[in-house]
Write a protein that binds this DNA or RNA. Structure first.
Length: 287
DNA sequence: CTCAGCTCCTGCGGGC
DNA sequence: TGCCCGCAGGAGCTGA
């Protein structure tokens, strides 16, 4: 499910509830998600206070006052849901997420004051680790991640160096988290369309102005998606159960057969498969 | 090192 | 209506 904009949306939605909050208890309803949870996870988190939520690529970072940081990945189907205690004292049905199946509530943060934050993940491709906050970028999940696409690290010179000499198709290069970290299938398709680059172009073949256009396209599409609260196709929800709406702004993703939306282009959006994943693109304007 | 393919898991929508 | 199949926003691992 979630790519960088969705994770950033989750971070922003959770921050008012989690920043500075005391975790009275962390309850684990199973021993693993994609990977086994680290030893004594519940004990090491319970009773700790959250500092300020962060994000690296598609990872949500929850630093604790113990000097350790939770590193959480939502995988394909993970959701974070906030449930607050109602004014009458009973646990209120404040979340609007009626589609969520409670059997997939794998991890529950019980916060001071009765608020609960639930990590629900039907497909269990998500992960949760706990590592020292110092040198956090050395943690296994983070150590091989590439450039953060928002911020100053992603610029044409850096991208040129990353792509130089590579024969892999651009689609695969942009999905490779070791190069740029945070893009997924949707935003790769969208960024390539915006920059008019064909997804099967060898990565090392891009010219200077194409790289420049791609950098702008990546930044713009991510910023616009965050502004829209992410994209909801199937299971992505905000922490209160509400929906993102950037999916309405997709130009090519999941739009097979529709007219290409590029100004003056008379092409049709095509769907192809590259290394097992759907690619949506226009053969007329993407070269 | 690079890269394609397979794999984990559940849910849902389309086609018959 | 009901069932089956294919497909889904991720990414680690294997092996060529």
């Amino acid at each position: 499910m979630p790519e960088l904009p969705e994770v950033e949306t989750v971070r922003r939605g959770l921050a008012p509830h989690l920043d500075g909050a005391l975790i009275e208890a962390l309850v684990l309803n199973r021993a693993d998600l994609r990977f086994p949870f680290p030893p004594d996870l519940a004990r090491r988190v319970s009773g700790r206070r959250v500092l300020t939520l962060g994000r690296r690529a598609k990872y949500l970072l929850i630093p604790l006052d113990s000097g350790e940081t939770l590193i959480l990945h939502l995988g394909m189907s993970g959701r974070m849901i906030v449930e607050r205690r109602g004014e009458a004292g009973a646990l209120a049905e404040f979340h609007h997420d009626v589609t969520r199946l409670p059997q997939h509530d794998h991890v529950i943060f019980h916060l001071e004051g009765g608020t609960r934050v639930v990590f629900n993940d039907p497909r269990r491709f998500g992960s949760l680790d706990l590592r020292p906050s110092e040198n956090l970028d050395q943690a296994p999940a983070l150590s091989s991640l590439g450039l953060e696409p928002l911020g100053n690290a992603l610029h044409p010179e850096a991208l040129t160096a990353l792509l130089a000499g590579r024969r892999m198709p651009m689609k695969a290069a942009l999905l490779d988290q070791r190069l740029i970290a945070g893009l997924g299938n949707i935003y790769v398709c969208e960024a390539l369309h915006r920059s008019r680059i064909a997804p099967d172009r060898p990565a090392g073949s891009l010219k200077g102005r194409e790289i420049e256009a791609l950098v702008v396209a990546i930044r713009d599409v991510l910023a616009e998606a965050i502004e829209a609260g992410g994209s909801t196709l199937r299971d992505f929800r905000h922490e209160d159960g509400s929906l993102g709406y950037f999916q309405h702004a997709f130009r090519v993703y999941d739009r097979e057969g529709e007219p290409c939306p590029a100004p003056g282009c008379r092409g049709i959006v095509r769907r192809t498969v590259q290394s097992g994943r759907s690619t949506f693109h226009c053969r007329e304007c993407q070269r």
